[in-house]
Simulated scan of single mutants.
Amino acid sequence: MISIGTSGWRYPEWRDGFYRGVPQRLWLSHLAAQMDTIEINSSFYRLQPASNYRKWVAETPPDFVFAVKGPKLITHVKRLRHIEDPLKTFTESLALGPKQGPIIWQLPPSLRFDRATIQDFLAALPQGRHALEPRHESFRTDAYFDLLHAHNVAHVVSDAPTFPCIEAVTADFAYLRLHGHDELYISSYDDEQLDEWAGKIHEWNRDTYVYFDNTMHGAAPRNALSLMARSTSATRREASPGRPPRRRDRPA
């Protein structure tokens, strides 16, 4: 299963491009008709009521998947320490049902790797798929990778010009965020770059979630659709004659 989408969907910059002629109230359903996943960003900034999640579920197809960004209260304010109460409040607010995919935890760039802190945080996470996106070079260490392996938590492979791209697959699924290779949140990926990432995804050979975060000038949806086309072509080539492509089953 390869799920490809964008990081968020509420971008006025997309109004005259991807959303041309589409009322704002239909932006999510318009995107969901063309992609099979999206990353919810608003949950990072403030606690979302369960009614919001139920609304988004109703606006998307049955097999759509939402990744959810963990709150900055946990990652940036408390810096992964003493997080039991806010973690419980956050996870209990989620009302996505079978459409819930991984929860992504984006760490602040100033947060260095500390084995005890990461170990305690991973141990506190509830059941389900979780992905961790560090933004400090100190996480490029086997001690970090070993902890993720032990808890089946995915390291987020992040492509960006301002923080390290640490390529490591640490769980039974992979998670990739493409923030813009040359200009953060801006630059578009060209054909050669998309081919390179498509090849890496194929080599990982496991369920993979991919989100384009180069949203500011509207490149994200274009790039997502281009990578989806490459993924579909690769799946068709992989299938032997007379044998259908692998099913895109959702994780249990």
Score class of each variant (00 low, 15 high):
residue 21 G to K: 08
residue 19 Y to D: 05
residue 203 E to T: 14
residue 252 A to W: 05
residue 41 N to H: 07
residue 80 L to V: 05
residue 245 P to R: 10
residue 183 E to M: 04
residue 107 L to N: 03
residue 174 A to Q: 03
residue 4 I to R: 07
residue 125 L to D: 03
residue 204 W to P: 01
residue 5 G to V: 07
residue 121 F to M: 08
residue 31 L to K: 02
residue 63 D to L: 08
residue 181 H to C: 04
residue 34 Q to P: 02
residue 205 N to L: 03
residue 119 Q to T: 11
residue 110 S to Y: 08
residue 190 D to C: 07
residue 22 V to K: 06
residue 185 Y to K: 00
residue 153 V to Y: 01
residue 252 A to R: 11
residue 97 G to C: 06
residue 92 E to H: 14
residue 25 R to K: 15
residue 64 F to W: 08
residue 206 R to K: 15
residue 8 G to C: 05
residue 138 S to I: 10
residue 137 E to R: 15
residue 218 G to L: 04
residue 165 C to M: 14
residue 37 T to H: 05
residue 248 R to T: 13
residue 246 R to K: 14
residue 92 E to M: 10
residue 42 S to L: 07
residue 137 E to L: 13
residue 250 R to V: 06
residue 97 G to L: 06
residue 92 E to R: 15
residue 39 E to T: 02
residue 197 W to G: 08
residue 57 V to E: 10
residue 158 S to F: 01
residue 180 G to P: 01
residue 119 Q to A: 15
residue 66 F to S: 08
residue 137 E to C: 02
residue 95 A to G: 07
residue 70 G to Q: 03
residue 100 Q to N: 08
residue 211 Y to A: 06
residue 145 F to Q: 09
residue 179 H to D: 07
residue 88 K to G: 02
residue 146 D to P: 00
residue 139 F to Q: 03
residue 215 T to P: 00
residue 245 P to I: 11
residue 85 D to N: 10
residue 56 W to D: 09
residue 157 V to C: 02
residue 124 A to L: 14
residue 162 T to K: 14
residue 227 L to G: 05
residue 76 H to W: 07
residue 181 H to L: 14
residue 65 V to G: 05
residue 212 F to P: 03
residue 232 T to S: 12
residue 61 P to I: 10
residue 67 A to M: 03
residue 193 Q to K: 13
residue 144 Y to E: 08
